[in-house]
Every structure is written in structure tokens, then in C-alpha cells.
């Protein structure tokens, strides 16, 4: 029996989760929500994490009904993500590890998403679409490595959606992407916009500039409604993602596809992926917002897998790094 606690703070969510042999005992999270029209900046986000880390940690222990002695390993997000928020969260993880005399495991954030998705859905060897505010990757496992088949060459899909939400001054509560999704349901008039797939990669920055430049004029003239624009944007970017995911599946001969990351809880994306999967005779695996959106349990789960195979990180190496690619990690826990 191994109990792992995970600390996640790479973006605007501060999450601490406890996992005991594949069972999530607790997974509280606190999100830094900015006013409409504003994104979250590293300094303010780090302050948010410092302010909430201790109460969220207490909540995680209380809900799991365990005491610090019961914990076997402390896991934290090493990267990728925003530097200052990562460090603020890691400081707490390092301090409690020393207070409680527990080993530490440094976890790659993307690997956390993949392992949590596999745990919750039971997918065995899926092609993974990892879509969030900071990352957009199509990943498949091979030879002890999560290999990146395709990715964004500029901004992440979630960043594109978030920034369009700022143009429309949509609320960031619970998340800008959620509010775009709700508006998109009521949209019907499709606006054609740049569809940028380059081989296995996608690009969203040109598309974002295009819609940022046009949106207000189209709305003022009454030609398109905010709902129509959200609908058109979603349809376009999701179609791009489905295209590269399908190509990766064809390449790998994969019969499973897993969607992880914050954008992964978008129902329309899941629906489009389901259609593609069905046509190929494959199965779609997806999770809801508790596990799709950044959380502590996913870091605990990935760390639990690593710890099980004997991986630990010496204290002096528990630094954080803004850039940390998914394929840099040796996957010791899969055959």
C-alpha cells in the first residue's frame, strides 16, 4: 500500500490531491480567477498559490482522513508551466517533505494528465490528445517514452480560446473556455476562418489574430452574434485537433483515444472525437472537469507510478523548469 500526495501549481489552479493505490482519497483545488478581459500573470498567480497552499493542503489531508505519517511520497509538478507559480507550490512540497521526512518525486505535468486519464478511464494504450491553456500535443506511447506525434507550433488551443473570451469580455468564472462552450451551443452561422494544419502540427496564433481583428466589427454590424463566433471558433480549432489525432491513430494503428487537459472537458470536442473514433472502430476515453482540469491527484498518480519503480528525486534536485517536454521523461512504469 502506497499513499502519494501531489502538489500542482503550474498555471492558475492550485491543487493538492492524495491517491492511495489508484484510489483518489481527496483532490481539492483553488482557482485564481481574474476579472473579465484579463489573463493571469505569473506574479499574481504565484501570490494566489502562496495564499491558498496551506488551507488546500489541510483540506486534502482532512478529506482523505489521513495524517502526514500515512503518506509515503510527496510529488510535485516540476514543469512545464509558469515559473513563479511552480516555485511557490514546490516550496511547500519541499518543506513538508523535510518536516515529515518523506521522499520526493518530481513529476512532469503532461505525464500527470496522461496517467490520471489512464487511471480514471481504464484506457490501456491510447493515443492521447492533450489540450489545455498551455499545451496542445498528440501523444502515443512507444518504447518507454510518451512520444509527441504532433503539437502546436505557437500558442496552445486553450490559450487561443481564453484570449478570444477576453475579446468578448466573457467571465473567467469558472473558466473562459467553459463560457465559450456555453455560447457556442447557441451559435449557428458559421464564419470561415484560417484552418492551419501543417503535417502533424497545428497553429492557432494566425487564427486568433484573424478573429481578434474581425470580431468587434462583425458584432457591431450585426452580421454575426457572439454565439456564432464562439461556435465558428470551436468548430474550426477542434476540427484541426481531430484531424491530427486521427492521423496519429492511423499511424500507430491505435484503437483507443484519450482526451486529457482542461480543454478536454469540452463536450463538443468529445462529441467530435467520438464521431471520428466510431468511424475508425476505436473507443473514446474522456474524463470530466474534476480530473481533466489541472489537479493535485494527477501529480500524485504519476508520482505514485514513478515511485513504485524506485524513482525518487533528491531534495537538491527538486527545482522547477518552465520548459519540460513530455518525451524527456523515461517511462519506467510501463512495459
Amino acid at each position: 500500500m502506497v499513499i502519494a500526495i501531489g502538489f500542482e501549481g503550474s498555471a492558475n489552479k492550485l491543487g493538492i490531491g492524495i491517491v492511495k493505490d489508484g484510489v483518489v482519497l481527496s483532490n481539492p483545488r483553488h482557482t485564481y480567477i481574474t476579472p473579465p478581459g484579463q489573463g493571469f500573470l505569473p506574479k499574481d498567480t504565484a501570490r494566489h498559490h502562496r495564499e491558498h497552499a496551506l488551507s488546500v493542503l489541510k483540506q486534502a489531508l482532512d478529506e482523505a482522513q489521513i495524517s502526514p505519517e500515512d503518506i509515503d511520497v510527496i510529488c510535485y509538478t516540476k514543469g512545464p508551466g509558469m515559473g513563479a507559480p511552480l516555485v511557490s507550490t514546490a516550496l511547500v512540497a519541499r518543506t513538508v517533505a523535510q518536516l515529515w521526512k518523506k521522499p520526493i518525486v518530481a513529476v512532469n505535468h503532461c505525464i500527470g494528465h496522461i496517467e490520471m486519464g489512464r487511471l480514471i478511464t481504464g484506457a490501456q494504450n491510447p493515443t492521447v490528445l492533450y489540450v489545455s491553456g498551455g499545451n496542445t500535443q498528440v501523444i502515443a506511447y512507444s518504447e518507454r517514452c510518451y512520444r509527441i506525434f504532433g503539437e502546436t507550433i505557437d500558442i496552445a488551443v486553450g490559450n487561443c480560446l481564453d484570449r478570444f473570451a477576453r475579446v468578448l469580455k466573457l467571465s473567467n468564472d469558472p473558466s473562459p473556455g467553459y463560457n465559450i462552450e456555453q455560447l457556442a451551443k447557441k451559435g449557428s452561422k458559421f464564419l470561415e476562418m484560417p484552418y492551419v494544419v501543417k503535417g502533424m502540427d497545428v497553429s492557432f496564433s494566425g487564427l486568433l489574430s484573424y478573429i481578434e481583428e474581425k470580431a468587434l466589427r462583425l458584432l457591431e454590424s450585426g452580421e454575426y452574434s457572439a454565439e456564432d463566433l464562439c461556435f465558428s471558433l470551436q468548430e474550426t480549432v477542434f476540427a484541426m485537433l481531430i484531424e491530427i489525432t486521427e492521423r496519429a491513430m492511423a499511424h500507430c494503428g491505435s484503437q483507443e483515444v484519450l482526451i486529457v487537459g482542461g480543454v478536454g472537458c469540452n463536450k463538443r470536442l468529445q462529441e467530435m472525437m467520438e464521431i471520428m473514433a466510431k468511424e475508425r472502430g476505436a473507443t473514446l476515453y474522456a474524463t470530466d472537469e474534476r480530473f481533466c482540469i489541472d489537479n493535485g491527484a494527477m501529480i500524485a498518480q504519476a508520482g505514485w507510478e514513478m515511485f513504485r519503480t524506485g524513482v525518487t528525486t533528491p531534495l537538491e534536485e527538486t527545482s522547477c523548469t518552465q520548459r519540460f517536454r513530455t518525451d524527456e521523461v523515461e517511462v519506467t512504469w510501463r512495459s
Binding site: 502562496r50 496551506l54 493542503l57 502526514p68 511557490s88 518536516l99
Partner: peptide, 18 residues
């Protein structure tokens, strides 16, 4: 100072060391 403050608060809440 911001960092050391967080470390102190963490030790106050979850210490003393075992």
C-alpha cells in the same frame, strides 16, 4: 522574503519537524 515567509508559515501549520 516572500519565499521564506511561505516556508515559515508551512512549518508553523504542519510542523514541528518529526
Amino acid at each position: 522574503f516572500e519565499h521564506v515567509n511561505l516556508v515559515c508559515k508551512t512549518m508553523q501549520s504542519f510542523g514541528p519537524p518529526r
